[in-house]
Amino acid sequence: MSTYVYGIAPADRTLPEPIEGIGDPPRPVRTVRSGDLVALCSDAPAEPKAKRRDLLAHQHVVITAGAAGPVLPLRFGGVAPDDATVAAMLAEHHDSYLERLTALEGKDEFNVKVHHDEEAVLHLVVAADPDLRDRHAAQRAAGGGTHEEKIAFGERVARAVAEQERTDAALVERTLAPYAAAAVRGPEDTGRLANLSFLVERERREEFLEAVRALRQENAHLREQVTGPLPPYSFVGTG
């Protein structure tokens, strides 16, 4: 029977309740211990897949176990051949995992995604560039201009917007980083200008959220989306 692993916690962690893991029916969560660490595990379903309910179950286990203290969350989908392999893995990395857990104590991840309000950013970039202003005025007067003129103008605007995205991404990171213990850049996607994860101490959470609010108030063209508190998925590595 192979073993599914959700996360790693200090061995003295008491789990608040019987926790349901992945699978249908849900496999009960148990622990595998080695030294001062336990791995939060369950039996793995015969053919585990990234189903919605299992993704949620994984998240649920990490959050529930994390209510009483830090947990190193595993990425979804890690399956070991058996409990002995899990214990051996805990033993092998024992000290570095323990060190990481200590570093994460009392801290949560907040994910901040930022995109532009389209109308506001178009206004901003066109108004800021005299040449774009002139072209804009001329094209409005001409009822929009020809197809080719529209494409040429739109391309200039798109470039200005892309430049503004870079400027604002740097601004967001620079503004919020002082309120966090660590920051990590997430994968970039078009349609948003920043995807940042911050490791925030609980005592500083309000300060951090207040900084996000201030950022929004001072930059009407930015739209922030904050998700958290989350298990520290982005901060499991050392450094």
Binding site: K49, A50, P81, M89, P231, Y233
Partner: peptide, 24 residues
């Protein structure tokens, strides 16, 4: 957002097999 974090971040242990993420 949560999907991205659960699927793309978090600790990876080399000795473990990863579940297929086809579809995701």
């Amino acid at each position: 957002d949560v999907l991205e974090l659960v699927l793309d971040r978090g600790l990876v242990i080399d000795a473990f097999v990863r579940v297929s993420l086809v579809g995701i």
